[in-house]
């Protein structure tokens, strides 16, 4: 006989992680937004008039708007009627945390500007694509900071970092130009990463939340 939920002590970690994931990362919307981003990069790479496409601000605006709108629309019209509504726990950071995050962000912006100034004043030309390289290093740093903490899984960040670094070095071996990496491959990589992480999150939610027709009369 299948045990009823009342018969067992609830699994605290499962309930908490499902609720936190559902409140913060409803994967299907991210998955669709990822397809949109990957499509933008693919069109750039395949189009004969690629530079014209990249120069069209309307396409860029549509993709950016899609990144924000699609997850919200999917949340409202798919997740909420099917699985219900959850409001994420309001963060209550200490002043020390706020100060640290603000300082780190300000330092990052300063370093970006300083590096940009230095590169332009010394006419430095990188053989690799610098932004993709920096993002790759950032993902690797996140992955390594997660090592030794069992509650975080670094594999996804590790894979993303390695892929971005590989893409950043495509111009070095003359397989692609820096413009193709920046306007095409970077978008394709981010799109595919979003699709994978969104799909995994969606599958986790689908498996964790039981179908219950009793709740269909509620909003």
């Amino acid at each position: 006989m299948e045990p009823t939920p009342e018969a067992n002590e609830p699994d605290r970690e499962r309930l908490r992680s499902v609720t936190i994931t559902y409140a913060g990362f409803q994967g299907l919307g991210v998955c669709i937004a990822g397809l949109l981003i990957a499509l933008y990069g693919t069109i750039y790479l395949l189009s004969q008039h690629a530079s014209r496409l990249a120069a069209q601000p309307i396409w860029f605006t549509i993709v950016m708007a899609g990144m924000f709108l699609v997850p919200r629309l999917v949340s409202r019209f798919y997740y909420r009627p099917k699985f219900g509504y959850v409001k994420a726990l309001s963060p209550n950071p200490s002043w020390r945390t706020i100060g640290l995050i603000t300082s780190a962000f300000a330092l990052f912006i300063f370093l970006m500007f300083a590096a940009g100034d230095y590169a332009s004043s010394h006419s430095l030309e990188f053989a690799f694509e610098p932004l993709t390289f920096l993002l790759g290093v950032g993902f690797l740093a996140i992955a390594f900071s997660c090592l030794g903490r069992p509650q975080y899984r670094p594999y996804q960040s590790l894979a993303a970092g390695v892929v971005l670094l590989a893409i950043a070095f495509l111009p070095v071996v003359h397989l692609q130009t820096k413009e193709q990496v920046f306007n095409g491959w970077l978008w394709v990589a981010f799109g595919i990463m979003s699709v994978i992480s969104g799909f995994r999150s969606h599958r986790f939610l689908i498996r964790s939340l039981t179908p219950n027709k009793a709740g269909r009369d509620h909003a």
Binding site: F83, G84, Y85, V86, K87, L209, H218
Partner: peptide, 9 residues
């Protein structure tokens, strides 16, 4: 694990 949740969830 959240601020609030509805009956369906």
């Amino acid at each position: 694990g959240c601020d609030e949740a509805d009956f369906t969830y």
